[in-house]
Structure formats: structure tokens, C-alpha cells
Design a protein around this nucleic acid. Structure first.
Length: 573
RNA sequence: CGGCGAUUAGCGCAGUCCGGUAGCGCAACUGGUUUGGGACCAGUGGGUCGCAAGUUCGAAUCUUGCAUCGCCGACCA
């Protein structure tokens, strides 16, 4: 490709709206342009990168025997009503009507369509296992799209769905996909970790996420320093504390804490540390549509965080977690948030393990502007239940008993699920077993955020000059920069010859044949992140040399013109 | 979904308080000089001032409504 006949579209200035490196560089290097919030056009350079990712994904999926299909973005609402997700998926599911007022949705994922396909097409157990995949556009109406394509509304996903006669077969395919994903992300040059994960809105009973380690990541992952244990923080168990609850001392008494709304403010007013204050949150109990929810109190150590996923899984609690609003709290306790506590609380009380070993602690008095001090479990609060409710913290013991936990930020680029029979049962995707009995097929599903992978790769591979693509993802392998092309016949001929020779050998090469100043061309090629840059100029050409520079290492090298092709082919091999 | 902010030339912004018919830098285009790390000189073109309504002799500027985009938050009660 010649830059003169291409759409390079680089930006010299940093776009104001880009808060993270990958978004900034994708705009500057001319990979993407925003069309609407969370919706982007992929420019030619970006599209080339996307296609690189897609090709590797296809190769590894095909190796594991997965079969490629293509399902529609626009799907009948009927299918979603059948699975029960038309209501349950919530406002992220974009709904629309056609001219006949028939209801449709934009597919945020394809379990419904693929299950409907499978129940028609799979007629015999002999056809199983079957693993179908596609690389296709998804739409999720995110509350807040951000960070460019990292959290867009429209994005490209590779999604695969497997069908099985039994759980053992599902486990085999799950392991295959886990292996394929590890190979894909390794080939893409990413530093990633597979971690145990919550199953979330997709549903199912077993799952791993593939997380690319990057500070810009929106997920927190934890891993042990002594074992292979790794999990999303949503899943990581905080082991019961080894310390014993201290003896109860003085009976509790009331202390004024006017204007205090947070644990830290209350601790300061009382002259104690935040970890001696009990944090009391109020959430909704599980309830039926239209019913008024009961309130449940959750108690944590003041310096620790609620884990909403863990709390949502406790029987009788609304899942996902819903926090009670100020009005409900006031009506139920008589106090405003900031002064709440378990003493005298009329509802169910859930206490985190670490909070349950606190003694002589402070907590809200359920009277606005007051706290109680020297409160003790059992003596002052009789009815409560103890659960693991908090997020683990740096240095906590690993749940597998080996070593301690460390926390890192991650970008979720892939996830594998064992779905079980959730969809096949709801939608009647059954198969006849050897006893002649109809049973729902076991299912698995496996996703890779193709567009997000591109952003994640840039987060891990860039410097102050621009992107540094791993060879496997680079939009072009080689860039040729000709200096004073229009002045020097020598330079032009040398560039043209090398360009043609590389093309003939199917090397993806970008020939910068613009009549630009050298600095402009160097800067653009580095911004785009082409791994191997060849510079042809009169100065070294007069000595029979041209210059090679590696984007990754920055090392320069003079190579003989006659040997140029050979040397370059060796470097990109 | 809540809070805050923005919307004026392709991009980044000033002008808005205090109403009088729009400006700067970069980019683009033309000519010239330059050419191994984002050049210089001269000239040229380009704007429904987000949309709608209102106030006014007159609105980018004041009022109201709407839309779009961005940032922060959405456990810390």
C-alpha cells in the first residue's frame, strides 16, 4: 500500500475526550473515529488490525473443531421471551419494532438464536458434540460507554456455543476452548491471566475469564503468590478470620456524631480508627414485581468493601443487589443513612465474617446524628447471620490455603462458561439419549471481545511515540520511508524496487511516498506502530546502504542495498 | 440512572458576564523557499454559532424547552 493512495488520517494533537492511552492512540493513529456514543467507524488501518485478530481467532477455533456460522444482529423478541431474558436482560437490551409493529431486539449475545437453531437442526445424539461459532457485531446499550472501543455499545465479538449429550462431553469442549483461548492470547502477544469468574447475566454454573493485565482495566483480579489460584475479585473468598472476638467491656452508650455520613467521618468524630466502626448498608430483600421490598441490613468492618456479587447470591436477597433509598431507610429505621446500625434494627441482619469478630465497636444508633460505642454481637444484637460478604484485600490469605493474595487491574478479553441446560431447557432443545428419553442438551458458551482485544493490546504495547504492535497484530509488517523522493531518482527507484519485491513475497508493506518532510513520515510510521521501518535516503544510499529500524527496540542498522530484501525477510520471519 | 460540564470553520479554542451581524491557532488550498525527526514566507477559501420557541428594533450572547457529547459517580449509609 502507498500512503498517497491510502487513508492514513493521523492526528498530531491529543484528542481531549480520550482518557486512556489506547483510546487516545487509536484516534491519533487513525484506527477509529467516533460516530455516536460508544459507536465507532473502523478506518482502514484499524480494520487491518481487527482482521489480524479475527484470523488468529478463526485458526485456533477451527483447530479445535468449532464450525463457523453467522447469525443475525436483529432478532425476534419472541425468542427472548421464550428464554425469559426479554425482561431479565434489562435496559441494556436494545428493543425495536419493524413497520408491522413486530418486536425485535439487537443481539447483545446469541444464546437464544443458536439454541433455536440447534433444536431444529440437531436431530441425533450422533451429531454431538457440536461447537458453533461466529465473529459478528453485538449491541449492548451500555449505561456509560467509555474508553473508546474498550466499553463500546456496538462491538465485535467472537462467540461460540457448544452442544453436548452429557456433562462430561461439555467439560471436554470447555477444556478445549480454554486451551484455544490461551493459544489465541499468547499468539496475540498479550500478558494475560485466566481467572475464576462469576457467571453474571449469561447464566450457568462454571466460568473463567481471560484478563489482560493493564492499569486501565475496569476489573480487579486477585492471584496467589504461592499457587496457581487466580480469580476475579467478585469470586474470591475472604477466608474466616483467625482472630478471636475480644471480650465485651462496658455496656454501650450513645455518642453524638452530627453531620457524619461516612464511616471515616464518624470515626474521626469519635476519635477512633475506621476499622473499629461497623459499616451498615441497607438493601432490598428478594421481592415479587409490584411488591414493596423488605429491608435487610448488611454489616461490614468500616474499612472494608461490600462484594455485591457475593451478597446477591445469599438466599432471600434481591439479585442483583438493590440499595434501599433514603426514604425507605428513613421510614423503616427512623434515621437517615450515616447513622444506621444493627442495634434495634427490625429486619434481617447479615454480617461479614470479619465484622463478626469485632468487639466493643461503634455503629450508627438508628437516630440521625448519633452513634453507639462499645457495641458487641450477641450481647447487644441477638439475631444475625454471618456470611462472606466483603472484597478480599491485598495480603489476605489465598482461599486455597497457599500463600497470600495480590490485586491487579485487568481488561476482560474473553470468557468461557459452562451453561448447563439453562437455555436448552427453557427453549426445548432436546435430544434422545440411549434409553430413548428426551433430555435437554448440555451447553457451553465462549466469547472473545475482538474489538476490545485491540484496545487491550495497545494498553500493553505503546510508548510516548505511539503504538508498538506485536508482529501478529500489526496492520503492516514493514514501512518504507523515501526521503526526498521527488528530488532523487536514486531514492525513488530503490524504494519502488524494494516495495515491489516485498509485495511479490506477500509481505504487508506500507510505502510512504508522500512528498512530506522526513520528520512527519517518521512520526506517522511510529505512531501507527509498524514493527519494521526502512528508510531510504541519498546520504546512506551513496554508500550503498539503507537504514533499518525496529519499532520495538528502537535499534537502527545499516544494511546493504543488494542484501536488503533478504535481510528484511529474515527480520520479519 | 444521579451529579457536573460542553456544544462557535476539519481539529483545538476565544467571544457570552455587559445584545449591535464572528475571531485566533493548527489543518486545507495556491505560489515560492526548504528537506535525515512533526519547516518557513506570502496569499486564498471555509461558519444554519447543536435544535426549537420566546424577549428585543436587533440574539452566538438573555429566557425556556429539547437534543447530543464528555467527565465523575453509581457500597462506604
Amino acid at each position: 500500500m502507498r500512503t498517497s493512495k491510502y487513508l492514513l488520517s493521523t492526528l498530531k494533537e491529543n484528542p481531549v475526550e480520550a482518557a486512556v492511552d489506547s483510546h487516545r492512540l487509536m484516534l491519533r493513529a487513525g484506527l477509529i473515529r467516533q460516530v455516536a456514543s460508544g459507536i465507532y467507524t473502523w478506518l482502514p488501518t484499524g480494520l487491518r488490525v481487527l482482521e489480524k485478530v479475527e484470523r488468529i481467532v478463526r485458526e485456533e477455533m477451527n483447530k479445535k473443531g468449532a464450525i463457523e456460522i453467522s447469525m443475525p444482529v436483529v432478532q425476534p423478541a419472541e425468542l427472548w421471551k421464550e428464554s425469559g431474558r426479554y425482561v431479565k436482560y434489562g435496559p441494556e437490551l436494545c428493543r425495536l419494532k419493524d413497520r408491522k409493529q413486530n418486536e425485535f431486539v439487537l443481539g447483545p449475545t446469541h444464546e437464544e438464536v443458536v439454541t433455536a437453531l440447534a433444536r431444529r437442526e440437531i436431530k441425533s445424539a450422533r451429531q454431538l458434540p457440536l461447537n458453533l461459532y461466529q465473529i459478528q457485531t453485538k449491541f449492548r446499550d451500555e449505561i456509560r460507554p467509555r474508553f473508546g472501543v474498550m466499553r463500546g455499545r456496538e462491538f465485535i465479538m467472537k462467540d461460540a456455543y457448544s452442544f453436548h449429550i452429557d456433562h462430561e462431553s461439555l467439560e471436554q469442549t470447555y477444556a478445549d476452548m480454554y486451551d484455544a483461548y490461551s493459544r489465541i492470547f499468547t499468539r496475540l502477544g498479550l500478558d494475560f491471566r485466566p481467572v475464576e469468574a462469576d457467571t453474571g447475566a449469561i447464566g450457568g454454573n462454571h466460568s473463567h475469564e481471560f484478563q489482560v493485565l493493564a492499569d486501565a482495566g475496569e476489573d480487579t483480579i486477585v492471584f496467589s503468590d504461592k499457587s496457581s489460584y487466580a480469580a476475579n475479585i467478585e469470586m474470591a473468598e475472604a477466608l474466616p478470620p483467625t482472630e478471636k472476638r475480644p471480650e465485651a467491656k462496658d455496656p454501650y452508650s450513645k455518642a453524638p456524631t452530627p453531620g457524619c455520613h461516612t464511616v471515616d467521618e464518624a470515626a474521626k468524630a469519635l476519635g477512633i480508627e475506621a476499622n473499629q466502626v461497623l459499616k451498615s448498608l441497607v438493601v432490598h430483600a428478594a421481592y415479587e414485581e409490584g411488591e414493596k421490598p423488605q429491608l435487610v441490613m448488611i454489616c461490614l468492618r468500616g474499612n472494608q468493601e461490600l462484594n455485591e456479587v457475593k451478597a446477591g447470591k445469599i438466599p432471600g436477597i434481591a439479585n442483583p443487589i438493590e440499595f434501599a433509598n433514603e426514604e425507605e431507610i428513613k421510614e423503616f429505621t427512623g434515621a437517615t443513612p450515616g447513622s444506621l446500625g444493627p442495634v434495634g434494627f427490625k429486619g434481617r441482619i447479615l454480617v461479614d465474617r470479619a465484622a463478626a469478630v469485632m468487639g466493643n465497636f461503634a455503629c450508627g444508633a438508628n437516630e440521625t446524628g448519633f452513634h453507639l460505642v462499645s457495641v458487641n454481637w450477641d450481647r447487644d444484637i441477638e439475631n444475625y447471620e454471618v456470611f462472606d460478604l466483603r472484597n478480599v484485600e491485598e495480603g489476605d490469605p489465598s482461599p486455597d490455603g497457599q500463600g497470600h493474595l495480590h490485586l491487579r487491574k485487568g481488561i476482560e478479553v474473553g470468557q468461557v462458561f459452562m451453561l448447563g441446560t439453562k437455555y436448552s431447557e427453557a427453549m426445548g432443545a432436546t435430544i434422545m439419549d440411549e434409553n430413548g428419553k428426551l433430555i435437554p442438551m448440555e451447553m457451553g458458551c465462549y466469547g472473545i471481545g475482538v474489538t476490545r482485544v485491540v484496545a487491550a493490546a495497545i494498553e500493553q504495547h505503546h510508548d510516548d511515540k505511539g503504538i508498538i504492535w506485536p508482529d501478529s497484530m500489526a496492520p503492516f509488517k514493514v514501512a518504507i520511508i523515501g526521503l526526498k523522493l521527488n528530488k532523487s531518482e536514486q531514492v525513488r527507484l530503490t524504494c519502488e524496487k524494494l516495495y515491489q519485491e516485498l509485495l511479490e513475497r506477500n509481505v504487508e508493506v506500507l510505502f510512504d511516498d508522500r512528498d512530506e518532510r522526513p520528520g512527519v513520515m517518521f512520526a506517522d510510521m511510529e505512531l501507527i506502530g509498524i514493527p519494521h521501518v526502512i528508510t531510504v535516503g541519498d546520504r546512506s544510499l551513496s554508500e550503498g546502504m539503507i537504514e533499518y529500524k525496529s519499532r520495538k527496540t528502537g535499534e537502527k542498522e545499516q544494511i546493504k542495498v543488494e542484501k536488503a530484501l533478504e535481510d528484511i525477510l529474515k527480520k520479519i520471519a
